[in-house]
Each structure stands twice: as C-alpha cells, then as structure tokens.
C-alpha cells in the first residue's frame, strides 16, 4: 500500500496466492494425471493392436455421445479405460475454474472487495459461457 488512493491486493493476499495457488494446481493436476495414466494403462492391457487398427478402434470409440454422470461412474467401476480417461479429462478442466474460485474466496475473506468483484465477474462469465456452450 503506497497511499490513500491505492486499492491493490495487500502483501498477505499476494503471499497466500503465491503459496496456495501452486499447491491447488498441483493437487488437481496430480489427480488428473493419475486418472489419465490409469486409463491409458488399462487400455494398453486390453489391446494388442497395431498402429492403424488402434487408430481405427479409437475412431470407432468416438461416439460423439455425452456420458451422463451415473453412466460414467458405472463404466469406471467396470474398469472401462475410456471412462477412466474421460474422468481424468473432466478433473483437468476443473483446474482453472478451481483457481478462479479460490481467488474469489480468498479476496472475500480478506475483504479485498475490488479484486473479489473482478474474480466474481470472471466466475459468472465462465458459468454463463458454459451455459451458452460456446466459450473457448
């Protein structure tokens, strides 16, 4: 803080963000990488195909169908490698959203309302974008 007109994050917030953001990112990333690796290893165990037939198998598995959550969980329990990898991809996409949510909660807790409103705006925008289904 360098004067009455200044409205920056304070040093404590900056320090918390620099310490906890990488930890948050690392934990979610580790979970995603574990699921993706398990999915690939299980798929290798079930497949002895060569390159071209493997690609063809993958093409055929691209059913372009959304998996309802209950169906996804059932397929994971059955050891379906595609379902396990899909869950890993879902977890991976949560990384940036979790980071924005974490920033919002931190700013709110620290009563840094200017930056809390910035992050709240981003969160609302992202949710709206997902509902519209065309962001990114």
């Amino acid at each position: 803080m360098t004067g009455g007109m200044v409205i920056p994050m304070n040093n404590a917030e900056d320090r918390i963000l620099r310490v906890w953001t990488p930890i948050l990112l690392r934990v979610i990333l580790a979970a995603a990488v574990s699921l993706l690796s398990i999915g690939l290893l299980v798929s290798l165990r079930h497949s002895n195909s060569d390159y071209s037939s493997a690609l063809e198998t993958i093409r055929q598995s691209f059913a372009s169908r959304p998996r309802p959550p209950e169906s996804l969980l059932r397929e994971i329990a059955e050891g379906n490698p595609i379902a396990i990898a899909t869950l890993g991809l879902f977890v991976l996409t949560l990384v940036p959203l979790a980071r924005v949510s974490f920033c919002f909660l931190l700013f709110l807790k620290q009563r840094s309302f200017v930056f809390a409103s910035f992050t709240a705006y981003v969160l609302v925008g992202l949710i709206l974008g997902m509902l519209l289904g065309r962001i990114g």
Partner: peptide, 30 residues
C-alpha cells in the same frame, strides 16, 4: 487455462473429445 477450461468442459459434456487421443496429449503436454 480459464477460457480454454470452460470451452473444454463444454466439449467434454457434449462428447466431442476423443478420450484416448486427448489423454496421452494431456499427459505429454503437462
């Protein structure tokens, strides 16, 4: 990651991501 994450969620929910291609790509890229 923020806008791409939101877009990727939409793609995944629609079933427009091929997991057995995206999984090794995500691992390699990471």
């Amino acid at each position: 990651g923020v806008t791409a994450g939101a877009g990727a969620l939409v793609f995944l929910a629609r079933g427009n991501v091929l997991p057995m291609v995206a999984a090794p790509v995500a691992l390699g890229v990471t």
